[in-house]
Design a protein around this nucleic acid. Structure first.
Lengths: 339, 339
DNA sequence: ACTTGGCACTCGCCGGTGCCGAGCGCCAAT
DNA sequence: ATTGGCGCTCGGCACCGGCGAGTGCCAAGT
């Protein structure tokens, strides 16, 4: 084992101990608790180098060392492979998720499970509308002057939008709308579908075209220009134990969870089946400067339907969390692919 | 002013000061900050009586007094009437809420508004299914062996349920189902509607009855036996500032917000247009022993569609919170009544 | 070229001490 | 019933000093 390798082992040991104890770790404690086969003085030297390189830091002179964001980053990058969960755990997850009856249920169970597995806050994004295709579209009259358009996507997501009708809309126009819509959108992506609907007003009698334009406008606005993304949270009560030491940073996390915008941006970057870790400052939101996010995309095959994540303090159990996130993302993808 | 009245004034002053400063308040501070027209010694005597009666307490000997749950309770009960918001505030609320386009939007805006007005956590319940009537029901084929039933209620809530079809279901049966369902449920309450559907299998050919029973079973189970209640939260980031002093009790609140069951139980008790306050131990959930809930029901006329609430520490601005809760509940009711 | 034990030094933590002042209850006087 | 006065209690704060964990450096050993 080269000196360089050993230094990394020291870093690994520091991360492990710090995650476990939440206290700065010193050279002596390190040699006691790990089989490093060198003396404390050697470790001290290694630690000095690690500190010089910015991987660890001392909260104050003459205290132990603590990993920096950069240190966690190296630690995570060097995890050769995500260690899989035990078969028993995998089965338990699979069985629990397999009981779900519909999309809402799948997502609710997933976040819940994820937060329980990791003892952190878990987030799951609803299958994104931007990549979804239309499985079915339904037109429901809502009393005078109003129509409800119900869109069901391939992932099982059901979205409804209210359309205010122009005064001259007749029952026949609505019937025509129902037929034309079904023809032009089924099986297509939302963006394409909306574009197709935009073409419709020109193809029908001028009496109906007002109605058709109104519908086209709503569809384009709410599904293409600003598609609504939804999140489900779970395990927020874990916050109080996870952040007891730095209560000042708790505000930021709560803020981020409340806003959701930041989270959605981060989840949008998730790629299928690979787990991404963002540590501290790497999340460019100041609210999350003290947090780490472990994210993964879920989907069928290589298409990403949405993302899920675990949010915790930078001092978290990365290997365990990554394994849990990957496992849950896989099963969610499988389940939604079936539908 | 009788001595009794003055004692109540003292209580009111203690509550006001404690809410403002978060610090135990003593006799001297009281006479300085309020026009009580008596000396500190008299106040001390009154405070001794109030303490004996359990309305206030000392955190430790020789500190100021703090209101107890019972003290807050008396304070709230004696608020003759909820002081209304200023016209400017009312208009701002009304304008903000009037922009919403559908149910989801109304509820999202309401909670958000409520949390911003009160600087606390706000909760809004989706219009409850138990009292809702069916405005429309739609049957959507979901590929082989599966059907999606979409139910739209009078409050604008849209619920979908997946039904697994028996193997022998034919297209004609599904078409028949669509017609029969529309006939038997429109305008009825969910419970009645489900009961009506239960009767249908007997009225159709045996080939279709399997399908009809499957649908009836799902409807009854998911709408009558365990109707899904949903909550929307907002302002959780206010928690960090509201609970800085007693971080130990934060866990309980987070837990309650995460669980939702407790909140739903408490919201279920809300009555139309009257604001209810539950203080500390009065919430029989141990998690909320340090919290106060200000709840109100919203609805059209006297029918309660659902409830909304503000959750905060027992030391909160009751008059202001009650006014905000009442105002928002009213506007939400008005908006949903229109639909 | 590493590694190691020794050594002096730093500094946060903890317990003890003493002072200050807010707040209280009691009481005698009005 | 109210008031001013008096003695008492106790939490909070600042200060102090010892303890010990942890460090960096260095000279000696492998």
């Amino acid at each position: 084992m080269s000196a360089d390798d050993r230094r990394f082992e020291v870093l690994r040991a520091i991360v492990a101990d710090y995650v476990a104890t939440h206290e700065p770790v010193g050279s002596k404690a390190l040699v006691e608790r790990h089989q490093l086969n060198v003396s404390a003085a050697t470790i001290r030297h290694d630690m000095a180098v690690l500190e010089e390189d910015g991987f660890i830091a001392q909260p104050h002179t003459s205290a132990g060392r603590v990993p920096t964001d950069k240190g966690y980053r190296l630690f995570v990058d060097r995890l050769a492979a995500v260690k899989p969960l035990s078969p028993a755990e995998r089965h338990a997850i699979q069985r629990f998720l397999a009981e779900s009856v519909d999309l809402d249920d799948v997502l609710r169970r997933s976040v819940r499970l994820l937060s329980q597995l990791t003892h952190q806050v878990a987030v799951v994004q609803y299958p994104t509308l931007t990549r979804a295709t239309v499985r079915h579209i339904e037109v429901v009259p809502l009393g005078p002057g109003r129509l409800l358009i119900v869109v069901i996507t391939d992932s099982g997501r059901v979205e409804q939008r209210v359309v205010e009708l122009p005064a001259d809309a007749t029952e026949e126009s609505v019937a025509l709308l129902r037929i034309k819509l079904a023809e032009s959108v089924n099986g297509r992506r939302l963006a394409e579908a909306a574009a197709a609907v935009e073409q419709l007003p020109g193809q029908v009698s001028s009496r109906s075209s007002g109605l058709f334009s109104a519908v086209a406008a709503v569809l384009t606005r709410t599904f293409v220009d600003s598609p609504e993304e939804r999140l489900v949270l779970s395990g927020t009560s874990n916050l109080s134990s996870a952040w007891i030491d730095q209560p000042s940073t708790l505000r930021g996390v709560l803020e981020a969870l409340d806003e959701q915008v930041t989270l959605l941006k981060l989840l949008a970057l998730a790629t299928a089946d690979s787990v991404t870790v963002r540590i501290g400052e790497e999340n460019d939101d100041a609210n999350l400067a003290a947090s780490a996010l472990v994210t993964a995309g879920y989907g069928a095959g290589s298409t990403v339907m949405g993302g899920l994540a675990v949010v915790g303090p930078t001092r978290m159990d990365y290997p365990g969390t990554m394994a849990a996130v990957r496992a849950v993302a896989r099963y969610v993808g499988e389940l939604l692919g079936e539908r």
